[in-house]
Structure formats: structure tokens, C-alpha cells
Design a protein around this nucleic acid. Structure first.
Lengths: 137, 137
DNA sequence: CCTTGACCCTCTAGTTACTAGAGAGATTAT
DNA sequence: ATAATCTCTCTAGTAACTAGAGGGTCAAGG
């Protein structure tokens, strides 16, 4: 049995974040000491680490909640879990794609090292210029 | 002179978003018709497109505001603009890096196509497993 | 025993960039 | 004239926290 501060140290999750997770219902409200302080056991370390890892991977807390929910029914088929992970993979891949084209454009901007003044600045010009914009609008 | 709805159509920026930008001071409050409706000219189309393009590139509205501010002093040196673009480039590159390692891990999870039940699910296991986690905690 | 410092509590509000909705007035088309 | 479609302001909700106010609790040293 340990305090929220100790749980925080064990998991690397900040104290207000732990309380926030509790409030969001993603972790259960723990027991309290006689003086109303939260008291945790190793089970919560496990769960919180699971959540932290998922967040690190960019999963939403809602997704993680779903995974936890699924996890408590070990007889269910694995496919639902895979769906979540797969959906997230697709999202990540499209994000990477967007960022890469953005990187290219920014590189072109910065690479253009015109030492001039803003009147001829390539960055400004390229932001204003619709011609450079491959997408709609 | 046209209405907010028409500006929205011309730029692809949604009406509430335009009002939000006005409220945030990133675009100027426009003239109003006698009945208090916003009336825009082509100047605002330009500016709004500039903003939309910047947002698409992932610049914060604060950054865009800075760029606009700088842009209204065309005699200033270009380097400040470059700084913003460059700062953002670095940010984007680190974001890409993170996402790629994330993609790798997710692929490993999803690739593991065990058709079993959750008891043996690789995704869950790998989220729970600290050993897989290269980072601190 | 008492105090000091570090911890914990709840509650509220701020962050970013919007989006949605309520309730009311204006414009346009038929 | 009336209906459909704007537009107005204002408030609140979104995600995932973070920060701060104002107060209670605990362990160690003097």
C-alpha cells in the first residue's frame, strides 16, 4: 500500500494525471487511508503502466479504456483488439505522410536562404501562394 | 463586399472558425452592414487563405500571427521569419521520428495475427510488457 | 511537544483550436 | 406574405492534461 506520490514515481505518471485518470473512470477509485488519502497496490502500477505505454504510442485514453475493458474478458476473440491497433496504425501512417510533405515544403522554405528582407521572403510568399498548395481550396 | 458564408466558401474555412479567428485577433474585425452582419473584401480572402495554409502545415495560430505581424513590416530582415519556419521544421522532424518508431511497434503488434482469444493477444501483452518499452519508467 | 517541510486533499480554471447548440434577428426566393 | 436560409451573440463542449488556491496530514528533528 503506497501513496499517490509513490505510484507516480513508480510509473512516471504525474500526480494530477493519475487523479485525472481516476476521474475519467479509466482507473478505479482506490481505497483511502483513514485520513482520506489514496492508497494503491501493485495492481494499479500494472494498469497505470499499461495506460502510460498506450499513451506513449499515441492511443487515445478512450481506446485504452476499450482495450482494458476487452482485456477483462479474456475469452473474447482477439480481433477487436487488433482492430483498434490497426485503426491506429493507419492513422499514424497517414499522419506520417502529411508530415513528410510538410517537411519537404518547410525545407524548401528554410533552404532558400535569401538574406534579404521580408518583402522578398520565400516563407511568406509560399504561405500566401495558392499555387504551391496541391490540395483543395 | 460579401458575407461570412461567402468568405467561408471561398476559403474553405468554416464560419465559426472565421469568427473564432476574429475573436483571437488573428484577423481584423471586418466592417458591418447596417444590420450588423460582417462584410468582407478580397483582402480577407487572401489573409484567411494564408492562415488556412499555415494551419494545414501544422503551424500554430500564434506562429501564423507572428508571421502576419512580421509581414506587415516588409523592411525587417527575413531571418526572423526563417527562425519560425526552421523551429517548426525541427519540430516536424522529431514528430516524424517518433511516429515512425511508433509505426514499427504497431506493425509488429498487428502483424502478429494470432487468431486466438484475448488471453494470448499480442497487442495486450505488448502493452502490458515493460520489457518492450525502450524508454524510461 | 512542536514546528518545519514535504506531502496530500478538493475544486476551479486555463491550455489549443476549434465545433455545436440555443435563441433571436436578417435576407432571399417564391 | 411566408418559408427557407442566412446571420448574430453567447455559452459550453472537445482531448488530455496542467496549474493554482486554500487547506489538511505526516514524518523527522530540536
Amino acid at each position: 500500500m503506497f501513496s499517490i506520490g509513490q505510484l507516480s514515481k513508480k510509473t512516471g505518471v504525474k500526480i494530477p494525471t493519475i487523479r485525472y485518470y481516476e476521474q475519467m473512470g479509466i482507473i478505479d477509485a482506490p481505497m483511502r487511508s483513514t485520513s482520506n488519502q489514496r492508497r494503491y497496490s501493485n495492481d494499479e502500477v500494472e494498469r497505470l503502466s499499461f495506460i502510460a505505454h498506450g499513451r506513449e504510442l499515441g492511443l487515445s485514453i478512450r481506446d485504452i479504456g476499450e482495450l482494458i475493458e476487452l482485456n477483462s474478458h479474456p475469452d473474447k476473440p482477439c480481433s477487436e483488439v487488433h482492430n483498434i491497433a490497426n485503426r491506429h496504425l493507419l492513422l499514424v501512417q497517414s499522419r506520417i505522410k502529411k508530415l513528410k510533405s510538410l517537411e519537404k515544403e518547410l525545407k524548401r522554405m528554410v533552404g532558400q536562404d535569401d538574406g534579404g528582407n521580408i518583402g522578398q521572403c520565400y516563407v511568406i510568399a509560399s504561405l500566401a501562394n495558392h499555387g504551391l498548395c496541391k490540395n483543395k481550396h
